[in-house]
Computed example of a mutant assay.
Amino acid sequence: MVAETSNVIDLQNVRVTFKNSGQELRAVDDVNLQIKQGDIYGIIGYSGAGKSTLVRVINLLQQPSAGQVFVGGQDLRTLTAPQLRHARQQIGMIFQHFNLMKSRTVLGNVEYPLLGKKISQQDRRKRAFSLLQRVGLEEYANTFPERLSGG
């Protein structure tokens, strides 16, 4: 099913429930979120509030207990495993505790996922630098992770 919407990400009534020692814990409770093309969002909140769980739902690294997840108008919950792997290649996310490779610069770390694409080194570098510009980090392109602030 394809959602009739101009939203790139559309979460509808998403809930994620975990069971712990027989107790039910709602990590995400009835979330509706719509993000339009070109918008950049950060999800903030207290530790344990469900931020990472919610972000993981967007590309189905975490299956929701209820609700619908549309990305690019496509209902991710209806995809086969190979289709979902392909869809995930089009979804870019940065988690709070991401792993940077210490031997690569910031630009090199951003370039890394593009190594599997059939594009030239020049195009890959240009694309990665464009992404850094988009989030205001281009001045750190040649900086190694050990020189960056944790914040």
Score class of each variant (00 low, 15 high):
Gly92Tyr: 05
Gly38Met: 08
Arg104Thr: 00
Val31Phe: 06
Ala87Thr: 09
Ala141Thr: 04
Gln90Ser: 15
Pro113Arg: 10
Leu54Trp: 08
Met1Thr: 12
Ile91Lys: 14
Glu139Phe: 02
Val28Ala: 09
Gly72Cys: 03
Gly67Lys: 03
Leu84Ile: 04
Lys19Met: 12
Leu115His: 12
Asp123Ile: 00
Ala141Ser: 14
Val8Trp: 14
Arg56Glu: 04
Gly67Pro: 07
Phe98Glu: 01
Ile58Gly: 01
Pro113Met: 11
Leu11Trp: 09
Val71Asp: 03
Val16Ala: 10
Phe144Cys: 03
Gln133Trp: 01
Gln23Trp: 03
Glu24Thr: 13
Val2Glu: 14
Ile43Cys: 06
Arg127Gly: 00
Thr80Ile: 03
Asp29Thr: 07
Leu114Lys: 09
Gly108Phe: 00
Thr78Cys: 08
Glu146Ile: 09
Pro145Arg: 09
Gly108Val: 00
Leu132His: 04
Gln89Cys: 05
Ala27Phe: 10
Met1Phe: 08
Gln62Ile: 05
Lys118Tyr: 00
Val135Asn: 02
Phe70Glu: 07
Ile94Arg: 07
Gly22Gln: 11
Leu131Trp: 13
Gln37Ala: 12
Val16His: 04
Asp75His: 12
Lys126Arg: 15
Arg26Cys: 10
Val69Glu: 04
Thr53Pro: 03
Val71Ser: 04
Asn7Leu: 13
Val28Ile: 12
Gly136Trp: 11
Gln122Tyr: 09
Gln89Ser: 10
Ala49Asp: 06
Gln96His: 07
Val110Asp: 01
Gly48Gln: 07
Leu114Cys: 05
Val135Tyr: 02
His86Ser: 13
Asn20Thr: 14
Tyr41His: 15
Gln83Ala: 15
Lys36Met: 13
Pro113Ser: 08
Lys19Asp: 13
Ile58Leu: 05
Gln122Ser: 09
Gln83Asp: 15
Asn109Thr: 05
Gln90Asp: 14
Ser103Arg: 13
Leu137His: 04
Gly72Arg: 05
Glu139Met: 06
Val110Ala: 11
Lys51His: 06
Ala128Trp: 01
Val57Asp: 02
Gln68Glu: 11
Gly22Glu: 10
Lys19Ala: 12
Asn32Thr: 14
Leu114Arg: 11
Thr105Met: 00
Tyr41Asp: 02
Ala27Trp: 11
Ser149Lys: 06
Asn32Gly: 12
Gln90Pro: 01
Arg127Asn: 14
